[in-house]
Design a protein around this nucleic acid. Structure first.
Lengths: 194, 194
DNA sequence: TTTAATAATGAATCTTTATTCATTTTTAGC
DNA sequence: GCTAAAAATGAATAAAGATTCATTATTAAA
């Protein structure tokens, strides 16, 4: 198994992403991935331990990339509200720009239940970003004090994921990023009338 | 294949639910399900077309039950706010009372992408319930007019699902239903301070 | 009790694929 | 251009597990 992350490695990884996204992990076959990558079946085993490892590495790689972006986005804001807007915008942008990733994160991550790993911590990292933002907002006074923060975080992440999920179901036919501000407005002000 | 939904049919369905929830659809085996149900492998095929059909029927059955409950819950309220509270409470209660269902809805429904069916409409039915409530609220004046309803619905459902998902990850160790009111408060009033 | 229909069994079959590895091709240093 | 190491190939292997079906057990009516 090669050690350096060569061009071929990433080529296979991307092909795998496309195939997993289209068929799901279990229905996807090694041959499909190999064919799409333009290599022989056996070649995959020079770069990956096994089929599961391909999924694992895909998710792991994407997670790293996306989190770097997200952290940068958060740091680009000053107030809690700015940071939140930047985060949600970044989240939607990254997923919009990589629909395979969006689909896989949505459908396959659940299958990694057993695999103890950094992967379990995808949401955790995200929720930690949110924690920081919420705490800052509470200090600033822009966010209420009387909140169950654990619930608020889940509330925010759940809603973004729901929006992404709908977008995926709609085959990515509309602009996802434009949902960011309306969504944050909902977080902040709720739906109550009068 | 039997036609009437006998006791054995439901026994198998429940066993399947437990096994699917524990191992996931693809890692679950027919033998595991049969053993847990206390019947022979072949017996499953007297009641179900194939393995996928078992999952399909499980989801289908649970969906019907839960939707009956949800509709009743909504109808038990008068104002939009009451209806929303009842719906979310019912949602959380039903999932709390049937963790296998919660896990399966969360992890496996995505796999039915290809299967065109009433199952695709799980969220749709739910979103329709929400539509009614939101529209009523807008007429009453308890919900703002200037909302993108499509987004609001997704926002609400996404957040509940997120909360359920966290509860499942935490192995169902706390009371899910008690999250209902705080959650609805978030929908209504948001997190903004002062 | 006999019998015919119905239900259940579980070992054998069949299919599908992930994985291996003996062989071939490519690469790069000389 | 030669050669040894590295990389790639893809046919053969092996394992798993879904599904079938000939056989056995159960049921219920006469």
């Amino acid at each position: 198994m090669q050690k350096n992350k060569s061009e071929k490695y990433h080529n296979i990884l991307n092909s795998a992403g496309a195939v997993f996204a289209e068929f799901g992990f279990y229905k996807a076959t090694i041959s499909q991935i190999a064919t799409r990558a333009g290599v022989a079946d056996g070649t995959l085993y020079l770069y990956f331990k096994n089929k599961e490892d391909i999924l694992y590495q895909f998710i792991s790689f994407k997670t790293n990339v996306v989190f770097k972006e997200m952290r940068a986005a958060v740091e680009s804001g000053t107030t809690a509200e700015e940071k939140l807007r930047q985060l949600i915008q970044c989240h939607l942008r990254e997923f919009q720009n990589d629909k395979n990733m969006a689909i896989i994160f949505q459908s396959e991550v659940r299958y990694l239940r057993d695999i103890e790993s950094q992967i379990k911590d995808i949401s955790k990292m995200y929720l930690d970003l949110l924690s920081e933002i919420i705490e800052q907002g509470q200090i600033e006074g822009s966010i209420r004090q009387d909140l169950f923060v654990g619930l608020v975080k889940r509330f925010i992440l759940g809603a973004v994921e729901g929006v992404i999920s709908t977008w995926v179901s709609a085959d990515g036919r509309y602009d996802l990023v434009s949902m960011a501000d309306p969504l944050v407005d909902l977080y902040l002000d709720g739906v109550r009338g009068e």
